[in-house]
Structure formats: C-alpha cells, structure tokens
Design a protein around this nucleic acid. Structure first.
Length: 545
DNA sequence: TCCCACTGTCATAAG
DNA sequence: ACCTTATGACAGTGG
C-alpha cells in the first residue's frame, strides 16, 4: 500500500535514492508521483487529486491494461500547463524504452491538439529517440502508471489546460544517469522499507556546481559508498544545497557503518538530533566531509585511531605518515569510523586546537552527567582531543609507543607545523612518562609487596627462633636439674679418709690432674683457672654447679 | 565534607 | 646534545 504522502523538504528526499538505479528494484510510489505532479498543478482541487489517486490505484490493479485503454481511461483527469507537461516529459527522459515507449510517443505525437512546444519537448526529451537510452545494470520495475494521455481543449496553448495521465506500466533499465532524474523518499532503513520514487520535474544539470561536485566525487572514495545518483541528485538542485549534501552524506556514512558492522541502530530518521549521534558535520572547501567531534566509537581498539588519511594530499594539508609500514595507516575503515577532519589546513587546525582546549574541560564536566557506560569521545583524554583537533592520524597510544626512529621519520616525512610538531612531542613525552609512571608505581607497589612478604617471612622466622630458643632453654633447665641431681647423688656418696660424709659447703667435686676428686672450695678459684685452660678441651668440668 | 587511593603530569636527576 | 627512565611532588578525580 502506498505510504501517505508527506511534504518533502529536499533534505528528506536526499539520499533516498540510495541503491536506485544501481542495485535493487524499486517500487514506484504513485502518490509520490502524484505529489510531483501536484507541484506542477498547484491549482488542482483536493477532490480532483483524490479522484486521481483512486484512479491511479485502480490503474495499478490493471497493470496489464493496454496503454491505449489507459489513454482513454485517464483522459481528462490530469491537467497540466504546457510548460509543466514539458517538464513531465523531460522527466521521463531516459526512463522508458522499448515498444511501449514508442507506442506512447506515437500516441502523443498523433494528438493534433497538442501544442507545438509540447511536441518539440517530446521530441527533444528522448521519447522520440530511444537510442539515447543508457542501459543500466539492473532491470527495475517502476513508474507503473506513466501512461501519457493527452487531449486538447482546443484553446490557446498558453492558456489552455492539457489533460495528461500517466498510466502505463513500464519495465525500465536504470542507469545512474537516469537515477539523477528522480527523487525518492528516504527510507528509514535501507533494506526493509519500500522506497518511493518521485519524478523530478526539473533538473538543472548544466549547473557548474554539479560539474565540480561530480568530478570531486568521482575522485573520492565517496563514490564507492553512495550510489552516484544520490550524490549527484543531492547536489543538483535545491536552495538548501549544503544542508542537503551534509544530510545525505551523513546518511551515507551511517549506512556504510551500519552495513559494515551490522550495528543495531535506532530509528535513524533524517534529523541530526537523533538520539544516537551527537555528530556535527563539516565540509571543507575541497568537498571532503567529516565530523569534528563526538563520534560514536565503534572501534574495538580502546583509544582508537585519531584521524585517518586523505586521498588528495595536495588539496588538504593533512598528516600522513609514510614511514615504517608497521605504523602506516591503511585501514580505510578505521578512517571512516573516526575523524575525517584531519585533512583541514594546518591553520584551521591551530584555531580548532584552541577551541578544543577551551571546550575540553567543559566536555569533561558533561561526562560526569552522562552514563559512564557510553563510549563517546568525550571520554577521550586531553591529548586525544588535541590530536583530533590537529588531525593527527595516530592514536595517542601509538604516538607514544612507536619507536623513536619511526617517530622522527614521521615528523620528517610530513609537512607539520611547529604547533603540530610540538604537540606531537608533548603527546609522546606525556604518553611515555605516563607509562613510566605506571610502571614505576607498579614496581613500587611490587617492592612494597615484596617488603611486606619479607616482613612476614622474618616475623615467621622470628617466631620460629623464639620457639627454638624457648625449647633450648627448657632443655638447658632440664639438664641443669638433672646435673644437680646427679651431682648431689655423687657428692652424697663421697667419703673422707675417716669414712665421714663430705661437707658440700667446704668441698667441691673436682677431678684434678693428680687423680684427686675433691678439693677445698677456697682452692677452687686458683685450680679453676688452671683447669679452665685445660678443661675446655676436655669438655669442661663441674665446678660451681 | 573529609579521607584515601589512583592517576596523570611536571620537574629533575641520572644513565 | 638528546633521549629515556626513574622518582618525588602536586593536583584532579572518584569511591
């Protein structure tokens, strides 16, 4: 069923032809065609429009009807001024082919009342010259009601209304060139919703702006991202050209990102205020398109890459490292997913750097209010913001990590301003110092941990030694008691020459060199000094126990 | 509001 | 002379 028509503001139309004429079949939205025709006939009443809609819907169900019948069927229902009809006929230029086209052409030309200017328009439009048709790569069924029925009122061509109906089903081959003649309603998703083609009444292909844009786009990789029809169409016309171009290219980028990563995306719409993106787009003078801030990060590389490459080095003063292949940036996907403004001029970069420095703290404050789970670039460090502002195509981590030779080579091989060189060196210095501080703190913590472990080991050993010491003390005490007991036992068994017990307060047991065992106590000190010298080698003695 | 741990940065010395 | 590393000191941040 046809989607309710909506007022197209140009921006919502742009980009909608994605894929049209290049890859996929497009259903024709009759209402969209009707809108275009309404633009030609703003004076038509609502009742007549409704009647036309009903008739067109009926015509869809009667697609097998011959064009001759359709001519009669819709005759008198669509009124166009001669000039407007010319536009309509021009619109069909290149879109129709084959016998059906020829038959319609003949029908049109055979109408005697048709104004001369209109007939000339038909001849010039290519309807009379099927050879102008440029076959496209894919057969597309569209414009199911493009039958042309004319009748004459017999009045002055300048004032009379010519009734024209477009009710013929055609099978067309689309070429990119053909697609430029169409405007489409933009689908919210590229693969699921019907796309509605609108016939475009006028198309100023002679605009110099278009020529420049086409040449530029052909030279850029954008042509690989968007159907040429989109690009040309969005540049071809409209007073809001810049806005439209940005919108369309944004959608193209989003689509590519989506297609590459199959990333679930909320309702994209066409508004830049969509919830998933805070991207602000900019267009440099050379036509390169990028966004300078708040890019949703889809990189899995942590810090990601700040910036990328430009294909046209002569146009944009960007930073492109050509040195060590290990550090070269060849991943165009990463370039696409990250900053694209590095191809601005260095002077522009310096001005934006200051702006970034001023806004960085503000952004950091904003981060506090946001969900920390988000991975927006507001989580980037100051250096990363600066690097992005200067369009340095390396991440801060890469700048700090790359060998000094590679770093110097990068500085030498690129046309860098003093600001850029200084910033690069600062980034590298801070990055390396950051890592050094991290390593140092890690080592410090490791050292502290090792010292704590040493403390634990020493404390354990201390406790062990204490236990051993106490064990030895107990052993010593036990041996002392044992020895005293033995000493007393031996002493009690000693007798003097008269057989009397020895007084322990007057004698001590001492094995002298002359064979004696007991000696008087007052002689112990002198004897002890002598025996000490001897007795140490003999295992000691029992004096003083 | 204070405390504390963590982190980044700067300055400086040393290699 | 230049670069890197180590380290103390300081400030910001978040729990």
């Amino acid at each position: 069923p046809p989607v309710p028509p909506r007022k197209e503001d140009g921006a919502t139309v742009l980009g909608s032809l994605r894929g049209a004429g290049c890859s996929m079949a497009e259903d024709v939205d009759l209402k969209a065609c009707q809108e275009t025709l309404d633009e030609c006939c703003p004076h038509q009443g609502e009742s007549q429009l409704k009647l036309q809609e009903d008739e067109k819907e009926e015509d869809i169900n009667q697609s097998s009807r011959s064009h001759a019948d359709s001519l009669l069927f819709f005759e008198g229902h669509l009124q166009l001024l001669p000039s407007q009809m010319e536009n309509v006929l021009e619109t069909t230029d290149g879109l129709v082919q084959g016998n059906t086209l020829g038959e319609i052409r003949q029908d049109l030309l055979l109408l005697p009342e048709l104004p001369v200017s209109t007939v000339e328009s038909i001849r010039c439009s290519g309807l009379c010259e099927p050879s102008n048709y440029k076959p496209g790569p894919k057969k597309v069924s569209l414009l199911e009601d493009t039958q042309l029925v004319t009748s004459s009122t017999g009045q002055d061509p300048s004032s009379s209304l010519h009734n024209i109906s477009l009710t013929q089903t055609f099978c067309h081959r689309f070429s990119p060139h053909d697609a430029t003649l169409l405007r489409t309603d933009y689908p919210t998703r590229s693969n699921s919703e019907t796309r509605h083609l609108h016939s475009q009444v006028s198309f100023p292909q002679s605009s110099s702006n278009i020529t420049i844009s086409e040449s530029l786009l052909h030279g850029s990789n954008l042509t690989g991202l968007f159907p040429m029809a989109d690009i040309v169409n969005l540049m071809a016309h409209d007073d809001n050209f810049d806005e439209i171009k940005l919108m369309a290219l944004k959608e193209g980028l989003d689509t590519v990102v989506y297609q590459l990563f199959e990333e679930p995306e909320p309702d994209s719409g066409l508004s830049l205020n969509s919830s998933h993106s805070t991207t602000s787009y900019s267009v440099c003078t050379e036509g390169a398109v990028g966004y300078s801030s708040a890019v949703k990060s889809v990189s899995s590389h942590g810090l990601g890459v700040v910036g990328g490459h430009s294909q046209d080095d002569s146009k944009c003063g960007h930073v492109e490292y050509l040195g060590d292949s290990k550090w070269s940036r060849e991943d165009t996907l990463q370039q696409l997913l990250h900053n694209h403004t590095y191809n601005q001029l260095p002077s522009q970069a310096a001005s934006t750097l200051e702006h970034h420095q001023q806004t960085w703290m503000e952004k950091q404050n904003e981060v506090k209010d946001r969900c920390h789970n988000s991975t927006t670039d507001t989580n980037l460090s100051y250096d990363e913001h600066c690097a992005k502002a200067l369009r340095i195509p390396f991440s801060v981590h890469e700048i700090a990590r790359m060998p000094v030779d590679s770093f110097n080579t990068m500085l030498a091989k690129n046309r860098l301003t003093d600001t850029q060189v200084s910033l690069l060196r600062d980034i590298r210095r801070r990055g390396r110092n950051r890592v050094a501080a991290q390593n140092y703190r890690k080592r410090k913590l490791d050292a502290i941990h090792n010292l704590e472990e040493d403390i634990n080991v020493l404390q354990t050993r201390k406790e062990s030694l204490k236990e051993e010491h106490s064990q030895c003390s107990r052993s010593i005490k036990w041996m002392k008691r044992k020895f005293n007991s033995l000493y007393r036992d031996i002493f009690s068994r000693l007798r003097d020459d008269q057989g009397r017990p020895i007084d322990p307060y007057q004698y001590v047991i001492h094995c002298s060199s002359n064979g004696s065992v007991l000696i008087p106590k007052h002689l112990v000190k002198s004897e002890q000094k002598q025996d000490t010298k001897k007795g140490r080698s003999m295992g000691g003695h029992f004096l003083g126990l």
